[in-house]
């Protein structure tokens, strides 16, 4: 496919990627969920279930784990954002790809979020809000200092553009 036809092509300045610590955070969450799946497996082993079923369960669970582990890496690498003169671009997604363009003048609020695990690993999420509920512009996996700086820059630009009305 020629590059001009790619709807998700990077802008001139290219995409800024997010930290790979995001993948670590998401894999830890995945591993925690898997503790439950493994516990179910142990319980199943105590029941008089045929061996074959148990093996099937283990194989299915393990392949889901491997696949999710791998897709998390790809998904985190798929995140990118670009600050242009008048708008912010955020790209994400592996299976379903998304690109959001938010002009600075339309931003109503910029949020900075970090859960307990995020804080442990040193990452944060910057989320943009507009008057539309469907605007889906969140940039996860930013280093806290970068995230704070980005938030301040976006807020300042938003104010600049809005006050010029």
């Amino acid at each position: 496919m020629d590059p001009a036809a790619d709807a998700f092509a990077p802008p001139a300045a290219g995409w800024t990627p997010v930290s790979s610590r995001l993948a670590t955070a998401r894999r830890i969450t995945l591993a925690l969920a898997f503790v439950v799946v493994a516990a179910v497996g142990v319980v199943l082993a105590w029941t008089p279930l045929p061996r074959g079923w148990l093996i099937g369960y283990a194989v299915a669970a393990l392949s889901v784990l491997v696949w999710a582990w791998w897709i998390i890496g790809r998904r985190v690498r798929s995140f990118g954002f670009a600050e242009r003169d008048d708008d912010l671009l955020v790209v994400s997604g592996v299976l379903i790809r998304r690109l959001v363009i938010v002009p600075y003048g339309r931003m109503q609020m910029v949020d900075l979020r970090a859960g307990p695990l995020d804080r442990r690993l040193g990452i944060a999420t910057v989320q943009l809000h507009t008057a539309a509920a469907t605007t889906d512009a969140a940039i996860p996996g930013l280093l806290p200092a970068d995230a704070a700086a980005l938030r301040d820059r976006l807020a300042a630009r938003g104010e600049e553009r809005t006050s010029g009305l």
């Binding site: 998304r98 507009t130 605007t135």
Partner: peptide, 26 residues
């Protein structure tokens, strides 16, 4: 219009298609 989104599911990708969304107030 508050923001513009482009989305593409796997099926759309295999057909060379993509969707354009214009986000407005709820």
């Amino acid at each position: 219009v508050q923001s513009v989104r482009v989305t593409q599911g796997p099926w759309e990708r295999s057909l060379g298609l993509a969707s354009l969304h214009a986000d407005v107030a709820p």
